[in-house]
Computed example of a mutant assay.
Amino acid sequence: MSSFVLERLIPASPGEVFDASLDVELHVRSQGSRRERVVAGPTSGMLRDGDGITWSARHFGIRFRLASVVYDVDRPRRFRDRQTRGPFSSFVHTHEFLSDAEGTRMRDTIEFRSPFGPLGRIVDAAVMRRHLIGVISERNDAISAHFA
């Protein structure tokens, strides 16, 4: 399994950053370059524990669908989402919100595995890790800008 961790300091309270991270409309705006949209599940408001949602977005010039579920919600400290159907063999995103003197340290831990065994591991190392870092960074840029 491949993984990476990204951290971002955001000048807002953990509760505010937590809520923004579960906001469907903010997420869609954050992925505008990929023309992401909701194709099943809530299209507005905040996602809650147990909510399922299916996203459609362009990656590498191809439109993909990824269905996920939000779980392990512990406001304002943490929540997780995992792929239930989509392009990965496994995809889990842990969102953590740590109080900091300057606001909130938002930590994203991504664990993923592409299909096709050894070939998928090569793809993960050569391409997918860098691509996913860009996707999550773009999302985090939008969350940061929300509080600017």
Rank of each mutant, 00 (worst) to 15 (best):
T54F: 03
R34S: 08
W55T: 02
D19Y: 00
W55H: 12
F147Q: 02
V92L: 15
A126V: 09
A67Q: 12
D100I: 08
M106F: 14
V69E: 12
A145S: 06
M1Q: 08
G45E: 11
M1V: 12
R105T: 09
G15R: 10
V38N: 11
S137R: 06
L26H: 03
F147N: 00
L66Y: 11
R75Q: 07
F60Y: 08
A125Y: 00
S90T: 10
H146Y: 13
M1P: 10
S89P: 09
R8V: 10
G86Y: 07
T109K: 09
G15H: 06
V28M: 07
F147M: 05
R77M: 01
R139C: 00
Q31A: 08
T104A: 10
L22F: 06
E111T: 10
I122G: 07
G117K: 05
I136C: 13
S30E: 03
I136Q: 12
P14R: 11
R107F: 02
A145T: 04
H59Y: 09
R8N: 07
H27P: 02
F97S: 03
S3A: 13
R37D: 02
R65V: 05
S33K: 15
S30T: 08
G61P: 14
R29G: 00
R82E: 06
S90R: 13
R63V: 08
F60E: 05
L132M: 15
R130W: 11
R113E: 14
S144W: 07
S33W: 14
P115H: 04
Q83L: 03
P115D: 09
F112L: 13
T43I: 08
I110L: 15
S56K: 11
P11K: 14
V69C: 09
R113T: 05
P42L: 05
F4S: 13
V5C: 15
R63T: 13
M1D: 05
R139F: 11
H95T: 08
F116Q: 01
E16S: 12
A40R: 14
P76D: 05
D74C: 04
D100A: 15
R82G: 08
D49L: 14
S3F: 06
V24L: 02
A142W: 01
D19S: 12
E7R: 15
F116L: 09
F97V: 12
L22I: 02
G86Q: 03
R37W: 05
L47M: 12
V123E: 03
A20D: 05
P76C: 06
R77K: 09
S114N: 04
G52W: 07
I122Q: 00
L6T: 07
L26P: 06
D100T: 01
R63M: 01
S90G: 06
L119F: 14
A148M: 09
G15C: 10
S13L: 13
F18E: 09
R78L: 00
D141V: 04
S30P: 03
S3L: 01
R85W: 06
S68W: 02
E102Q: 13
A148C: 11
H146M: 06
R78N: 01
D72P: 02
V5Q: 15
